[in-house]
């Protein structure tokens, strides 16, 4: 089974020069927490996730603490966000992107997702242009369909 059999052909993307504010709006409207960042030829040059923005708005020592529950309010987050909301997302994106091609196997996709602890994997053509997205549930669904089909085929042996 190949990636092209399980992927979603949506190429919603964002551009490097968009503001953080735009990214927050877009990801909320799309109900999607990570976006590919593309150039003017739809080639993927990075990714940006909600995590990247949230981590910019909370103090860096938070990572060392077990809990943030003793911090009384979100004032600091508000302050940080108002400072970065007009900055281009280009400053915050991850430029090393793990991508996959349509003719790669689903097994390879599953391996990449697990190995790199990803929720989504972006699919590109041979020129690096974005052609879609694949995630864990799409992979599981595609494999499940195949399992069910094989089962039905076994239950109904070919008649003479």
């Amino acid at each position: 089974m190949l990636v092209k059999d399980a992927m979603v052909r949506d190429v919603s993307a964002i551009f490097e020069d968009e503001k953080i504010e735009t990214f927050i709006r877009i990801s909320a409207l799309h109900l999607q927490h990570v976006f590919p960042v593309v150039d003017e030829k739809m080639k993927i040059i990075g990714i940006i996730s909600e995590d990247d923005v949230i981590s910019e708005t909370i103090p860096s020592y938070f990572g060392l603490l077990h809990s943030a529950s003793f911090i009384p309010d979100t004032n600091q987050m508000k302050r940080e966000l108002s400072e970065i909301k007009d900055e281009p997302i280009g400053k915050f994106i991850k430029r090393t992107v793990i991508t996959i091609e349509e003719n790669d196997t689903i097994l390879h996709a599953a391996d990449l997702l697990l190995r790199h602890k990803l929720l989504n994997l972006f699919v590109v053509d041979k020129d690096g242009r974005l052609t879609g997205i694949i995630n864990r549930s799409r992979i599981l669904l595609a494999v499940l369909h195949e399992v069910l089909e094989e089962k039905t085929a076994q239950e109904k042996p070919n008649r003479l």
Binding site: R9, D10, V11, S12, L29, H30, T131
Partner: peptide
């Protein structure tokens, strides 16, 4: 069909 729509409120 590949989709690439701008989502609005």
């Amino acid at each position: 069909i590949t989709t690439s729509f701008v989502h609005i409120d």
